[in-house]
Structure formats: structure tokens, C-alpha cells
Design a protein around this nucleic acid. Structure first.
Lengths: 108, 108
DNA sequence: AATATTAACTTACTTTATGTAACTAAGTAT
DNA sequence: ATACTTAGTTACATAAAGTAAGTTAATATT
């Protein structure tokens, strides 16, 4: 199936990134501040394999930045860039919608 | 890997729905008005198999409604419910972010 | 009457994405 | 030399998505 046309290329690129599994939750977590790999892993329940993949993608897109601290053992922190923090209103609008429209049945 | 705790159950339910592939684009399309199956299929380039699955899910969540018109051949239209239209600000915030932050390299 | 047409799916099968659990690398500390 | 810790990676299993052909129901055509 070939698609008709592109409505808005930037919008579709954005959805390609944001609409991937786990991306929303990773960004939501990092809005609270930079975190380590294992901390993100355990806070949202993603597998290490996919987290590693997603963080690389998000870094490539300039949404996340990786910082290495030469301590022992090494500490690596993932934080949002300005571009990443600019997603806060998106996450907020989702949260706002969820509060208004997700009822108890949907929750279960 | 088990996750630590749930930050906000409603928010996570919302992400479960919205973070699935194609959901964003389907809702974006339907914001322009109710559309037929084949029209959605060709406008966003999704496969019929998955579109069928997504529309059922979205109907189940109360985001989309399916209307049957007994014409020949039968006409079936999918449109947004009030809950679905309430997602417009979410899509708008994504579009706004995309316009400000998706550059030409990311597009390619 | 038999065949064709159209939209809206569904089915069987292939390819891609994600999950799981064990393993590796680098830098100490014992 | 061996063990410990974090941050991954690898090999393999399962789940989700893509592809293309087939089904159904109501006409229209020959």
C-alpha cells in the first residue's frame, strides 16, 4: 500500500519518533532530570536491549544527550536537550487529556 | 524486567493507546472529518490488516465511532467521538513542536 | 441465470520489532 | 588473580506489522 501524499513532513517525522514504543515514557522520565541507564530501565520496565536502541535514536535526533562521568564504576547519565525539553507541552497535553477522558474501565 | 512503580496510571493508559504505531496519524486524519476505511488506508499508507485492528481498538476505547450506511455498495464511515476530538490539542502540540524543532536533516 | 463489480474486511504467510537472559568490557577493590 | 559494579551487547524466542490473495454481501451487467 502506497500512501497518497504527505500532509506535513515535519509532523510525520515527529510522529515517527514519538509514536515508537517507549519513547513517550522515556522522555517523561527524563523531564524529571538526567538519569542513568539502569534507573530508566527499572523505572519504566523497558528491556535493556530496546532502551539502548531508543537512547541511541533519541541521541541521534538531538532529543537526548549522553554524559560520561569518569567515576568508579563509570557513571553515564542521559538527559534531555533543549529540543527534548521542548516536548514537555506535548506530554502535558497527553496527561491533561488522560485526566479528563481515561475512565476506570479503560484503566483495567 | 519489572518496573518500579506507576507514575500516573491514566497517563500510562493514554500512552499505551497513543504510542502505538499509526494511532496518531489515524486520529490526525479523522480530525478532518469522518472517513471510509479505504480512504484512511490510502491516505496514510497503513496496511488493511493493521488498520482494521487499530480501528477496532480505537472504537473499544471510545475514541472512534463506526457508522454504517446501507447504500450500494455499503458505506462505512469512521469518525471521532468527543473523546477523540479532545485529542486535537495533543496533535496540535506535536505539530507545533515539529515546526520548531524538526530540521531538514531529520526530515530526510 | 451466471458473471462481474465494489467496499470492507479477513486469512495465511513473511518480515520486522521487542522481550529474555546470558555474556562482555573497563575500572577498581580484595 | 579474582571479584564487583555499571553499561551495555549478543543470541535466541515471541509478538507485532506488512503483503497479497481470498471472502462476503448487495447490486449491475451480459
Amino acid at each position: 500500500m502506497m500512501k497518497d501524499k504527505t500532509i506535513c513532513p515535519r509532523f510525520e517525522s515527529a510522529l515517527d519518533i514519538l509514536n515508537k514504543r517507549w519513547t513517550g515514557l522515556i522522555i517523561f522520565q527524563l523531564l524529571e532530570g538526567a538519569q542513568r541507564f539502569s534507573s530508566i530501565e527499572s523505572s519504566i520496565g523497558i528491556s535493556g536491549r530496546v532502551l539502548s536502541e531508543r537512547l541511541k535514536d533519541l541521541e541521534k535526533y538531538g532529543i537526548v544527550e549522553r554524559k560520561v562521568y569518569n567515576e568508579t564504576p563509570v557513571r553515564i547519565e542521559y538527559g534531555l536537550t533543549e529540543k527534548g525539553r521542548a516536548l514537555e507541552p506535548v506530554l502535558n497535553s497527553i496527561q491533561h487529556w488522560a485526566e479528563g477522558w481515561i475512565d476506570n474501565e479503560t484503566l483495567i
